[in-house]
Every structure is written in C-alpha cells, then in structure tokens.
Amino acid sequence: MRWENLTATTQNREREAALFGADAVTTRTFDTPEFRGVTFHEIRARSIVNRVPGASRMPFEWTVNPYRGCTHACVYCFARKTHSYLDLDTGLGFDSQIVVKVNAPELLRRQLASPRWRGEHIAMGTNVDCYQRAEGRYALMPGIIAALRDRANPFSILTKGTLILRDLELLREASRVTDVGISVSVGFTDQELWRTVEPGTPAPERRLAVVRTLSENGIGCGVLMAPVIPFLGDRPDQLRTTVRAIAASGATSVTPLVLHLRPGAREWFMAWLARHHPHLVRRYERLYAEGAYAPKWYQRRITRQVHELAQEFGIGPNHRPGLARRIATVPEQAPAPAQEATQLSLI
C-alpha cells in the first residue's frame, strides 16, 4: 500500500492550513481499490468539540466530527453544503475530498479535561459518518470513545457504517459509566434504490445486522428510518417491508425522517433525479416548493404509517431516547383528511 503526498509547496500548505482551520495539512492518496480516486487532507485541527448553532434546528448542542466529506456518497446528504466552506465541490468533491482530523482523540482528551467543560452530551455522526471507510485506515474512533469513557461523558453515535462493531467492547465499557445512545440509519431496504442513492454504504441488511449484534451484546440500538424518499421509497408495501426488517433486527425504536433537501444537497439530488427518474422532477419541485423540507402533512402521514407498523411488528415505545429520537420529532397534529386529500392531489 502506498501513500503519496500531493501538497507541492509551502505556500499551498499555509493556504490549506488557514482554509481548514488547522495547524498543518498533508494531502495524500491511497492506491488500494476502496480508496481509488479519493484524496485525503490530513489536518491537525485546533478544536474538535463544536457548538451547534441554535438556528440549525438540531436537538443537541455539541458535536465531534473527525471527518469532513464522506465516501458513502449519499446523493441526498445534507452535509454537502459544508464542503463549500472549504472551497471544495459539494458534488463529487464531497464524495472524494475527505478531510481527516488526525489529532482528534488527543485534542478531545484535552478539551474534556478543561475546567470550562461541563460534561454535556456530545453527538457524533450528525454531519458526516464517523464510521465511513476512511475510519478503517485512520482508526480515530477508538481513541475518541476511550476519551469519552474515561471522563464518563455522555455521547451518541449515528452511523450507516458496519465498522462500529470493531469498537463493540469500548462501547460496552462506556455504557457502564455513562449514557451511550447508538442509532443506525436505514431508510429503506429496496436494493435497487440503495445502490443508486447510497452507493458507498454497506447494504441495508448489513446495517440491520449491526443493530442485531449490538442488541445481543446489551447495547440498545434504535433505527433512524432516514430518509424516507418520496415517490421512490414511500409506498405502503415498501414502508411495511422496511419496518418489518427493523423489528426483526431487535431495534429498540424506529424513527422515520422524510428526505430534506438543503442547498448544496438539493442541487446534487435534483441532478441525480433528472438522470435516473426524470418523470419525478416536476413532482419534487412541487413537493419541495416551500423550501428544504417536505410539507408537514406529508411528514405526518409518513410518521403515522411508520408508527402504526412499528406497533404491529412489536417495536415498543422508546423509553430511553437515543440519537434517532433526538433528531426526529413527531408532529403534534396531523391535518384534516379533506385537507390532506387536497394536498395529495397537487403532486
């Protein structure tokens, strides 16, 4: 295996360090099949515990993100916009230009030890997946989990990656001393849909096997059923098949979340839609005419269907909320049937 340093000049290194908010940057490629075409920007970050802006609508205040960019290459990923802050492309660049904070574990230990830190909940996997393929090479998460365990600091992880099972023992140790919430993202089980919209991720059945293994080892794991993709993954039979598979995995809860299309992700997703499902473009333009989120009536309809299926298949109420429950909230009131019928006719 060969790493190649691509950074040519001191001037380039200084510019990249300033852009990435880092003390040093080394840019490399890796010549194995799983990383072909991928460039890694290894940085020594200046901070690792990030405060979430209040306007973000996220139900947590602090995050740790050891990577930026993601080889999962999900066409809908809301985090694509963040690559533009680094002067990197939000399309293919997001999938292939990966920023790696190589000093994340040591930096986290230092920040957790600060007198100013109050031991608040830290969410991971909420921007890009901390168990994407790059983690197999860089192995940052064991040090991160160990730092949180040693400080008994509560945390949660959301992932599509099966590599989390490598850290099973660390997660068990952490769960003995603090609150640990694990959620796996599985929006659908349709194989053709998975191959086209999530080409770099493990298959849905492999992710559900992760849920099963975690449960068998005493670590409760919820499923964030996300995204539910309108007109491609929202038929009643598709929802039923997915919820049945989630129930069979032993998930502690299932929380549906309808596709949202923020700037950066919206343009990339709509271009993909025009190539693969051109007949749906106008329907999407109407459904998302008001912004990044599908109308509340549509979200409520999906939530109601999934919750009814969850009850049918014996997934009980979530008495110990994990990350999935923290991210997705259930609307308080569904629209009147007549109003919903009228809105359905519009699309």
Results as ranks from 00 to 15, higher is better:
Val210Gln: 02
Ala271Lys: 13
Leu224Ser: 05
Leu261Cys: 13
Ala310Ile: 03
Gly218Val: 03
Gly200Arg: 00
Gln305Tyr: 00
Arg206Gly: 06
His277Lys: 13
Phe269Asn: 08
Val211Asp: 08
Gln311Ala: 13
Ala271Ser: 12
Gly264Glu: 08
Arg244Cys: 07
Arg283Gln: 15
Pro204Ser: 04
Glu290His: 07
Ala226Cys: 11
Glu267Cys: 07
His277Cys: 09
Gly264Met: 04
Leu309Lys: 02
Asn318Val: 11
His319Lys: 14
Leu280Pro: 04
Ile246His: 02
Glu267Ala: 12
Val281Ala: 07
Gly291Trp: 03
Met225Asn: 13
Thr201Met: 07
Phe231Cys: 05
Arg266Leu: 06
Ile219Pro: 04
Phe313Lys: 05
Leu214Pro: 06
Asp234Phe: 02
Leu224Asp: 04
Glu267Trp: 03
Leu257Pro: 00
Ala274Trp: 02
Tyr298Asn: 06
His319Gln: 14
Arg301His: 12
Tyr298Arg: 05
Leu287Thr: 04
Pro278Met: 05
Thr242Lys: 07
Cys221Arg: 08
His277Ser: 13
Gly218His: 03
Gly250Met: 11
Glu312Ser: 11
Val228Ile: 15
Gln299Glu: 13
Val211Trp: 07
Pro230Asp: 03
Thr213Ile: 09
Leu259Gln: 05
Leu287Phe: 01
Ala247Arg: 12
Pro227Trp: 01
Gly200Ala: 02
Gln305Gly: 00
Arg266Met: 05
Gln299Asp: 06
Glu285Cys: 09
Arg301Val: 00
Ala310Cys: 03
Leu214Gly: 09
Ala245Cys: 10
Arg262Gln: 13
His279Cys: 06
Leu208Lys: 09
Pro204Phe: 01
Arg286Val: 11
Glu308Ile: 00
Ile302Lys: 03
